Simulated scan of single mutants.
Amino acid sequence: MARQLADVLAANIHQHIASTGIAPGTRLPERALAEQFRVSRSPVREALRRLATQSVVTPHPDGGYAVAEGGVAPPANDTHAGRDDGDDSEATYLRIAEERLNGQLPDRFTENEMMRRYGITRGQLGAILRRMAQEGWVERLPGHGWTFLPVLTSAETYKQGYRYRLLIEAAGILEPTFKLDREALLKCRTEQEALANGGVRTASPAALFDANSRLHETIAACSGNAFILEGLRRLDRLRRLMEYRKAVDRDQAERRCREHLELIDLLLAGQQEAAADFLRLHLRNAAREKSEGHA
């Protein structure tokens, strides 16, 4: 099982590097990857070792690994399956999300039922289920089978989510306990800059959601208020599938990434009040644009 998890993580990390356009030489901290994929650091370390043997990452002079010159290329076809399982798995993953939102899937299901429904192998399904579990919208039942966890399913609750974010996110920047995590914000800045400079044109809906929610959660963590951070994390888990469902307007997505860069720069410059005002405007614009899109 540990070997399987490392294989899946290696593929996910490679896909993340390719889809977000992280520059060669960029260090890949184990802790940040473990938090992103919601696993412990041990499988991340093993996954990075495997990627090093594939020349996707390379040892960093200060320890750990960095993106190699060839690491930004998309993952090659899975040699075990003889075809591009990454693309197939992503398509199946998004189809499951869409059918769940459409009410076409029951609350509980077995692996055999899903294998038959989507025409995939147990190994392919296992990778998808692990990803869904890490993202917090399914969990394994104690005895047999799996269950879907609650998510936002209506346009009205989706709008309520944005109104909730308007209440808590900007307020978090103005908390008396706010303490800037410069290193974490700079990592987010590198990611957002890569997206704004072309990466957003090819990134999957999942990669865009992960990068953007990671930035907002990083800022919430700086608030020093555990309730603000936990509230946002819980909402992000609930709204994930609704975000996948919406048609991605690449121009709007690029503009939001550039706004993220402005927000980060305000915070790095110590302009908290200006950053809070900017964040409110950013969230209002994003809510309006997405409400006008396909639900």
Rank of each mutant, 00 (worst) to 15 (best):
L5A: 04
S42F: 04
P106H: 04
R50S: 05
L281T: 13
R237T: 01
A155Y: 06
A47M: 05
S89F: 00
G119K: 07
H282Y: 06
R239H: 06
L105Q: 07
I228C: 07
T26W: 00
M115H: 03
D87R: 15
T153N: 03
E289R: 15
V57C: 09
G82P: 13
P59L: 02
E90G: 03
A23P: 12
Q54Y: 04
A206R: 03
I22Q: 14
L263E: 14
E30K: 10
Q36R: 10
D78K: 06
L129S: 00
E69Q: 14
A11G: 14
T202C: 02
A32N: 05
V138Y: 02
T20Q: 15
G126F: 02
G82K: 13
G25Y: 01
E156Y: 06
L208K: 01
Q4H: 11
H282D: 09
L180C: 12
T110C: 05
L166D: 02
T157N: 10
R237P: 12
R116Y: 06
L267M: 13
E69P: 10
E262M: 10
R31N: 08
P59Y: 05
T20F: 09
N77M: 12
Q15A: 15
P205W: 00
A194L: 04
L174A: 04
T121N: 02
F178C: 09
V8L: 03
E98S: 11
Q15N: 13
A2R: 14
L261F: 07
K187E: 14
